[in-house]
Computed example of a mutant assay.
Amino acid sequence: MDELESLTRDLVATPAHDDEAAVGDRIESWLREHTDATVTRDDAPNGGNVIARRGDGDESLALVGHHDVVAPAQSQVADDGTYRIEERDGRLHGRGTADMTGALAAMLLAFRETDPAGELVFASFVGEEDGGVGARHAIERDVAPDYAVVGEGSTGYSGPSTVDVAVAHKGRRASTLRASGTAAHASEPETGENAVYRACDAVDVVRDLDTPATEVLGHRLVGSLVVTEIDGGDAWNVVPDACEVTIDERTVPGDRAALDRATEVEGVSWDVEQDLPPMACDDAAFADAALDAVAGAQDATPEQVVKPHATDAGWLADAGTTCVVCGPAEPGEAHTDAESVSLDALRTCRDAYLEIAARWP
């Protein structure tokens, strides 16, 4: 068993869905023991972000991940409360192997082993699964590197088992339309104002809205807009006075659907519950350097791709960091009861992180 597999196993085994403090402790202690970096632990919720710095220069490059995970299935938890992890057919199976503790292990080794071209930062955030809590906390305290490689999944987009480089990803805006009306007996509907009808009128507006699209470094990124739930009324014989409609919107850099138009329907209001920002790499040279590093670390020919869902790269990009996403997770692995990661992809990512840190900026 090599050091990468051993470190991945150690980190993955540590529970990290309710409180990330324990795995944060392991990451912090490893950095202090195995590197000469300046290591800090901030006061972000659930145990704090772990941030380390080494090297110097006018510009900084960060290797970025998160050490929280979603709640495991019972089959992924051992009798002693640790997370199960096992190797089968060249893959490590267990909660967090793909999203994204495996990538963290690869980043830690690259951070230690490289001779950085400038200031090299390692950052592992808490609360990514809760809307980027840790990333936002760090950014508010001026942790915003010039460049970043975010270790979320980019494997298997251009071809099976190929580690690619994502130069853009969609964001997510979750919102609710709330229609109000006036209750009445269903035998005399004309004496009331039916909130469900108003909600349906608002849904018609949503269905007619244009879906934003954009292009990032020659790659087309198209958003989506979907009504996902509708809830109104509380009795068969009562005209409903309230109805709610939830909307999942996948956003693209620089644009949003004009959902406020739904409020032109009488009695309808609109509230945004979550707005995870999209990401677009704004430096073609950095994206090309990352692709070159990934290409040199594997036999396959990788491509620059786009991802369909949000990551902490969106928060960093909003703060002015030039980002790409590169990690071992494949589509469909994260958040599943059978989550796993390829050991070959982990090794490719470790070598690619080493190379990009040695040559950039």
Rank of each mutant, 00 (worst) to 15 (best):
V64C: 03
W30I: 01
P72T: 08
D43L: 14
E33M: 08
R95H: 08
L92K: 06
A16P: 07
T35A: 05
A52N: 07
E86S: 03
H17S: 14
A37G: 09
D25I: 15
A98D: 00
R41Y: 12
E20S: 09
D56K: 03
G47L: 02
P45Y: 08
T97W: 13
E87P: 02
L63Y: 12
L92V: 10
D42S: 13
R41P: 15
E86A: 10
T38N: 02
V77R: 03
H93K: 02
D56I: 00
G57F: 13
P72K: 04
G47N: 05
N46L: 11
S75Y: 00
D68I: 11
N49H: 09
G48N: 09
R53L: 01
E20H: 15
D25Q: 12
A21Y: 14
D79R: 07
A21F: 14
R32V: 09
H67D: 08
I51R: 14
N49M: 04
G65D: 08
H66N: 13
A73R: 01
D58A: 12
S60R: 12
A16Y: 14
D42N: 06
A16G: 08
H34F: 12
D56C: 00
N46G: 02
W30G: 11
D68L: 12
G48W: 03
D79K: 12
E20W: 15
I85A: 07
S75I: 04
V23Y: 12
S75R: 02
H67Q: 08
A37R: 10
P15V: 15
L31G: 08
R54W: 01
D18W: 15
H17F: 15
V70S: 03
D36S: 05
E28F: 11
N49C: 14
D79H: 00
G55V: 03
T82M: 06
T40S: 13
R26H: 15
D80T: 01
D43C: 02
T38H: 13
N46S: 13
E59H: 11
D36K: 14
D80S: 03
Q74N: 02
Q74E: 10
G57Q: 14
P45I: 09
G94R: 00
E28K: 13
V69L: 01
S29E: 14
A73T: 02
E20N: 05
V23C: 07
A22T: 15
R95T: 02
V77F: 01
G81W: 07
R84F: 00
L61R: 13
D19R: 06
R53G: 02
D19Y: 05
T82W: 01
E59Q: 06
Q76C: 01
R26A: 10
L92P: 13
A21E: 15
R54D: 03
D56R: 06
V23G: 09
A98Q: 00
N49L: 03
N49P: 06
L61W: 13
A21N: 06
R88Q: 10
E59P: 06
S75M: 03
H67K: 14
E33C: 10
I51K: 05
